[in-house]
Computed example of a mutant assay.
Amino acid sequence: MRKKTAYDDALGDFFAQHADTSPYNAYTDRPAMLQLAGDVSGARILDVGCGAGQYAAELTARGAHVVGIEGSATLLRYARARVNGQAELRLHDLDEPLDFAADASFDGAVCALVFHHIKNREQLLGELRRVLRPGGWLLISTTHPTADWHHFGGSYFSHDWSDLAVAGGKHSLHYQRMPLETFISELLAAGFVLEQLIEPRPTAALRKIDEATYDRLHQAPSFLAVKLQHP
């Protein structure tokens, strides 16, 4: 029986309907990650936790061949409608091995704002290293540990699983907090080489539609994003 995820049903609907315009997704995380990806024309890319398909659609439009995996059936329905057959999408539990993919079968992988939801991160990173070709790249974005510390309080070094209320408290996101030390150490222990680390800020386009939010998100970080290489 398929494991139900937090993004099934109502939360999946909420995320899919807001990710196109959210200051966090549309104007902060996604532009930064796509800039890190650079030229993807002709590349075979694995979209890990493809959500409602925004990344898959954008990468495909830029000439990539995308395989997207998602644990939420709700989000996958939105993603399939968005890409309209232009990318290969499959329902897959991200805590399970990537048994559908051959060794060294991808040029790049994107894992956008999903890493902190994964319980078996060591296995996922090992599998990503396996399916990426030598010289391939991996992009990961996650919640910024100082943002979590500011919001939840307690110890900065907490590894607690926490619930972040969204949509005025109607829904919550369940994920594991981790300090920067843990985040980077897990990536390096998996055998990846860190090429670049950024703290994404919203693009100027947000300022034109919501100057107050633009200014607020330039005062404190929300996310971390890294580009890693398979040596």
Rank of each mutant, 00 (worst) to 15 (best):
H150W: 11
L98G: 12
L34R: 07
K119L: 12
A104E: 15
A79N: 13
D39G: 00
S141T: 08
S72R: 04
Y214D: 04
H151P: 00
P134L: 04
D8T: 01
L217E: 06
F152A: 13
L89W: 02
K170W: 01
P200Q: 02
A43I: 04
L188P: 02
P97I: 00
I209L: 12
F14D: 03
R30F: 03
P202H: 08
M33R: 03
F100H: 08
G12T: 03
Y214F: 15
R201L: 02
N120G: 09
P97M: 02
L138W: 05
K4N: 08
V226K: 13
A57N: 04
E122I: 05
Q229N: 05
T213D: 06
V193F: 15
A57Y: 02
D29Y: 03
E181S: 06
A64H: 10
V166Y: 03
K4I: 09
N25M: 10
T142C: 13
A167T: 00
G68I: 13
L187M: 12
A112F: 10
H159E: 10
Q17Y: 02
C50V: 06
G168T: 04
L187P: 03
C50F: 08
R207L: 05
G169Q: 14
G136K: 15
G71S: 05
S185K: 08
G42F: 15
E122M: 06
S158P: 00
L91A: 10
S158N: 02
Q219F: 07
E127G: 07
A37K: 04
E96Q: 10
Q196R: 15
A19V: 14
T60G: 14
W149S: 08
L228W: 07
A79M: 14
E88I: 05
V110I: 12
F100A: 08
Y7Q: 02
F152K: 10
S155K: 15
E58N: 07
T60D: 12
A10K: 10
E96R: 08
R30W: 02
G38Y: 11
R177W: 09
F152I: 00
D210W: 06
A10V: 11
G12I: 00
A16Y: 10
Y175L: 05
A220V: 07
